[in-house]
């Protein structure tokens, strides 16, 4: 069953020029779909629509069949910057979505504590974000995203602010964590390698106004290792995607 469906979404900020036109996107349960495209094609706008921050002029967003168009608080959303609140400890940052839902602080801490080890940030509970490295902060931010909803996550270039080595580390870590957690995810990136390595399916977003121009299925079985990026298979995917982006 489709976890999330975006149906015929058209969006414009000023009711004159469309930023997104007739977007159709289906995310299956447990799947990771990458939205790939050059900057300024409305990838983040599409996320804002799905997250309910922007209401589309046309079309609808369905979560497990239920219409959630324009509703916030239904799917979890993580931005490029970690956006951890500097004045809260990592633990208190992670439980924020639970507090917003009305859970008691003690309960929320207990609930979140189960996942710290799994996300590789055990021991950072009482630290402040400024004390952690970029990679660790991003892990904490991802855990916070996960705490919000274990169903559907929108990740907007979560690793793009990191240096190449840390990024590689984060990819290995991410594949590892996602092995144990079934989280249906849409992932924005402009990094073709990252898209091929992590996703089950890649949707190319292009054109002006933005629309889904192509779809590539990555058949490599999961769990994948980072060595996948060194295979001929990987290169073939990369060539075909690069060609499609160039048009």
């Amino acid at each position: 069953m489709a976890a999330l469906e975006v149906k015929n979404v058209t969006f414009s900020y000023d009711n004159v020029t469309n930023v997104l036109e007739n977007i159709n996107l289906t995310l299956n349960d447990g799947e990771l779909v990458c939205l790939l495209g050059v900057s300024g094609r409305g990838k983040t706008t599409l996320f804002n629509v799905i997250a309910g921050l922007n209401r589309p002029q046309q079309g609808s967003v369905l979560l497990n069949g239920e219409d959630i168009t324009g509703q916030t608080g239904r799917v979890s959303y993580m931005l490029q910057k970690d956006l951890l609140l500097p004045y809260r400890t990592i633990e208190d940052n992670v439980i924020l979505p639970l507090l917003i839902k009305g859970m008691k602080k003690r309960e929320a801490r207990l609930e979140a504590d189960k996942y710290f080890a799994e996300f590789g940030i055990d021991g950072t509970q009482k630290r402040y974000p400024a004390e952690l490295s970029g990679g660790m902060r991003q892990r904490a931010a991802l855990l916070r995203t996960y705490m919000f909803s274990g169903e559907v996550a929108l990740l907007d270039e979560p690793f793009s602010a990191l240096d190449t080595i840390t990024k590689g580390e984060m990819h290995r870590w991410y594949l590892d964590v996602m092995n144990n957690i079934r989280l249906s995810t849409i992932f924005i990136t402009h990094d073709v390698d990252e898209a091929i390595l992590l996703s089950d399916r890649i949707c190319l977003l292009g054109g002006n106004p933005g629309t889904i121009t192509d779809e590539i299925i990555i058949r490599e079985p999961k769990p994948r290792s980072a060595d996948f990026t060194l295979t001929d298979e990987f290169m073939r995917y990369k060539r075909s995607i690069t060609d499609k982006i160039r048009g």
């Binding site: 804002n48 997250a51 309910g52 921050l53 916030t72 608080g73 239904r74 979890s76 959303y77 931005l79 910057k81 956006l83 609140l85 004045y87 809260r88 924020l96 979505p97 507090l99 917003i100 839902k101 919000f148």
Partner: peptide
Amino acid sequence: SDADTINLMRSMGASRMQIFRYVKLPNSL
């Protein structure tokens, strides 16, 4: 207060009051 952070809080379904409590108030300290 950071606009992205407020947007993130909104996407989590935070009310105006919660955004004030968790973002604006500590930010102004």
